[in-house]
Amino acid sequence: MERGKAGKAGLNVVVTTMVSDSHTWNLVFLQLLLEELGHRVTNLGPCVPDEVLAAECRRRRPDLIVLSSVNGHGYNDGLRVVAGLRACPELRGTPIVIGGKLGIAGAEDGARARALLAAGFDAVFEEAASVDAFRSYVRSLPAGVLL
C-alpha cells in the first residue's frame, strides 16, 4: 500500500531493533500495542543489520518506523541508523521514532534525546513511562501523514 493511503485501515508500521540488540519481548509488545490501535505491523525481529533495515523500509514504504532497543547500545546505534535511513530519498519524510533503554547508565538529563532528535528522529521515547506518550503520538499521525 502506498504511503498516506492507509486511512481508516490503519498505518503500515515497521517495528524493529538494530544490529547488536537481540531483545525481542519489547518488539512483541510494541507489535501487539500497534495492532490494537488498528495498524498493520511488520516485525523485523532481533539483530537487524543496517542494510536489511534500510532495504525493508525502502521496499515497504511504511507510514511509521519504530526502533526499539534496550541493550544499552541504542543511542550509539540509533545515531548511525537514522542517518542511513534519512539518506534514502524514499524515507526522508517518513516518521521515524526510537525508544527503550538507550544507554548503559540508566536515565539521564535529556541530552541523549536531543542528540537523537537532531540526528533525524521525529520522537524519542525512553523507558516504560513513555508508552502513553507513544500512543498519543501514533494517534496524532494519520492526519499528519495523510494530508
Binding site: 544490529v19 547488536s20 540488540d21 537481540s22 539483530c47 541493550n71 544499552g72 547500545h73 550509539n76
Partner: peptide
C-alpha cells in the same frame, strides 16, 4: 562480553 562482540560486529566494537 558486549553486544557488538556477541553479534560479530567486531569493527563496531573497535570503533566504540
Amino acid at each position: 562480553l558486549d553486544s557488538y562482540t556477541r553479534t560479530g560486529e567486531v569493527a563496531a566494537a573497535r570503533r566504540a
